[in-house]
Amino acid sequence: MKILAVDDDPIILELLSHFIEGMTDHTLVTAECAADALEAIKDNARAPFDSFLLDIQMPVTDGIQLASQIRAMKQYMDAPILMLTAMSEKSYIDAAFSAGATDYVTKPFEMTELKARLSLVERAVEGLATRTSKVFAAKAVTHHDGRPERAVQLHEPMAIHDVNNLIEFMALENYVQQLSRSDLFGSICFAFNIRDVEIFHENMSNFEYCSMLSDVGEIISDTLEGCQFLMSYAGGGTFVCITESGWRPDPKLLANNINISLAKTELFDNRGQHINPRICAGKAVRLMWKTNSSVMDALSEAHASAEEATANYQKVQNDFWNVGRTA
């Protein structure tokens, strides 16, 4: 991997260089401020970076602003960004995840921890390369009816960009894992599932499907505006949300509001046909008293609950038309 590390402390940069170049096969480029980092990105345009290590607290442009600027570059929309942070910077960590960070490493570094995090990043970079090659392959292959081959699998989490507080699923998992016991006390996760997502997935082109997911994500994000939350698209038409502000969401009420916004927003496919995505909400799952692994189970529980709500909705719809019928 080719990594760009940005930190205003030369000792940190020396430590990172020493560790990464001495103990791994990765290549490290360093910068002492955001301006130098942007210059390095420009200078390395022909052989771009695979991932970034950014200090949060830097003068002039901090690491959170820099993460946003890197995310805004088309080339680095999905590149892993690890924030370098001290334990005292919890509020900054939240902002960093919102700005597009994938994970964080706590200073002072434990070399074993840094190595483990870099291994995760390397796997993410490899996964990214595989997905990118699939997308390029998909462009060349078409269905017999002329529809392009779908690159996004139905149950695959997908990065959706430019939606407030919507982060990658891997980043959401990392975010949840860093919540402390006191943070977990007020944290709740809940999820929304797009009804008939299989039909959308089957009948839409990859671009249409991704656009539809992005539009639904944006409407969910707009509906939750004003509440402290992070959300992610987890695949299968499900958006998982987490709040840690002590706010107790009413998922069903939120689902109604989201569906009203969806109804008011005119969404079309590429052929100009009106599309009507609607969502169902699962139950709100409290995270308090949960350990690291059961916190991840809680995310799955919220996800499954939203899918179950959709299944129940569809069953009720079917049963309604079957009332009074006999074989």
Binding site: D8, D9, I11, I12, L15, A86, K107, P108, E110
Partner: peptide, 20 residues
């Protein structure tokens, strides 16, 4: 903040803790 961020990694744990 800068001292606290590196002292521990270099083996100066006590100094890092006081700085933090």
């Amino acid at each position: 903040h800068q001292i606290a961020g590196t002292a521990g990694s270099l083996g100066f744990d006590d100094l890092g803790t006081i700085a933090r």
